[in-house]
Write a protein that binds this DNA or RNA. Structure first.
Lengths: 227, 227
DNA sequence: GCTGAATTCAAACGGTCGTTTGAGGAGTGA
DNA sequence: TCACTCCTCAAACGACCGTTTGAATTCAGC
């Protein structure tokens, strides 16, 4: 474990986590990673068989870390009511996203994958299953009718996870045409708004909602509140 | 206008629209574009001064096309009530996204920019203003209190536009772990759900909503988020 | 038809990328 | 000490990238 060779291996993985989380898989180069790890470029191929293999290890480390470190206590989450669960879900993730720590990096890597999915990740998904999806399912099920179809369930999960992406790079808000100043206050405010919007949005899935607003051409549902 | 040189120029722009919309600015190579346009590689530098210049022309063509071709009739939109405006907004964009036509490509290009913003686009934004933002502002203002702060207004616009991104590449839903079959029926269903969720989410911004669900720890404010 | 400018072309340039090579160093067991 | 494996290293490889070059071709105006 503590052999010098393992040290190099670990250094490479740590450096890869930092680089891939910041620039994505395509954007991060092996030269940058090996330089950050004080290792030789050939080390990646020696230890991992190539850039893909290194990334695969990073993904494995990510799910492991999520299982161990995530402050998302699934049992506590399961006991919450829907709105509180959503809020906890969001606040945990937003906090992780904007901290410089390991968990934030892992979350960023997964979010990169939702933006531009790599073949490595696709293969990875085929063998392992991400706890993230389980957590998301737990949350959305609090809002969906028990007899919801599989398609709708996945749509809701997909949508919930995509809400996180919105804030993967909040610095976008700092540039034109938004020109907002990103500080902790704004992040908190963002979390408030996002959480409230998500609760309201997910509530539309309930079968007994007056929120189920349809367009004019669709089959008329009884409750058409208009604006 | 119809000189052979202009033909090459137009072919290059058309090919660039196709390539950049499919692969983004970074991912699309000049070799691929020139090959698709039956032009020489040097033509891009001759006519546009480089890849950046070509992309700039593509962006200009995009906003022009949006102004001319977009079925989003701003006046009609302005006359609608909030929910109907949201629904129209979504349905128009989702339809464009999933058609193979020019407008869908332009929309895709803009969405690429929200995922990975280029310097060209940043500079472009500094000089021109996108009608897209105006339309989004029109829609969200139907839900926001009249005295909404500039920050909140931009957050709402940012969020609304980001909802579109969710479906920029619906093929993601076809792969694990979702494994959904994307057909017209699903697209329609998606539009229904997304529209309903967005209406509900935007409605949380109103000061008179019971939807403004807060987490336990936050200052209990029944009304506007303030912060 | 002639002339000069506009345009096209094949080829090459310099750069970054991921990967491979083969020599050499470091550690271990006999 | 020896032999052996494990590991590191500088250098190079081949592929792709955007761009440049300079000659060849096409075009417009007279």
């Amino acid at each position: 474990m503590s052999r010098p060779a393992d040290l190099t291996r670990d250094n490479l993985i740590q450096a890869a986590i930092a680089v891939f989380s910041a620039k994505g898989f395509e954007g991060g180069s092996v030269r940058e990673i090996t330089h950050a790890a004080n290792a030789n470029q050939a080390a990646i191929n020696y230890h991992f068989g190539g850039k893909d293999g290194l990334y695969h290890e990073v993904l494995k480390a990510s799910v492991r870390a999520f299982a161990e470190l995530s402050p998302l206590d699934v049992d506590r989450l399961a006991a919450m009511k829907g709105p509180q669960a959503v809020d906890t879900f969001f606040r945990t993730q937003l906090k992780a996203l904007n901290r410089r720590d390991q968990l934030g990096r892992f979350l960023r890597i997964f979010t990169w994958e939702t933006l531009a999915r790599t073949q490595v990740f696709t293969d990875f998904l085929a063998t392992e299953n991400l706890p993230m999806f389980g957590v998301a399912e737990l949350v959305v099920r609090k809002f969906l009718p028990p007899d919801t179809e599989r398609t709708d369930l996945w749509i809701a999960i997909f949508w919930l996870l995509s809400q996180i992406e919105t804030f993967i790079r909040p610095e976008r808000l700092e540039r034109p045409p938004y020109n907002l100043k990103i500080d902790q206050k704004l992040i908190d405010h963002l979390a408030d708004r996002l959480s409230a919007m998500t609760v309201a949005a997910l509530s539309t899935w309930g079968s007994d909602r007056a929120w189920d607003q349809r367009r004019s051409g669709s089959p008329a549902s009884q409750a058409a509140p208009s604006s």
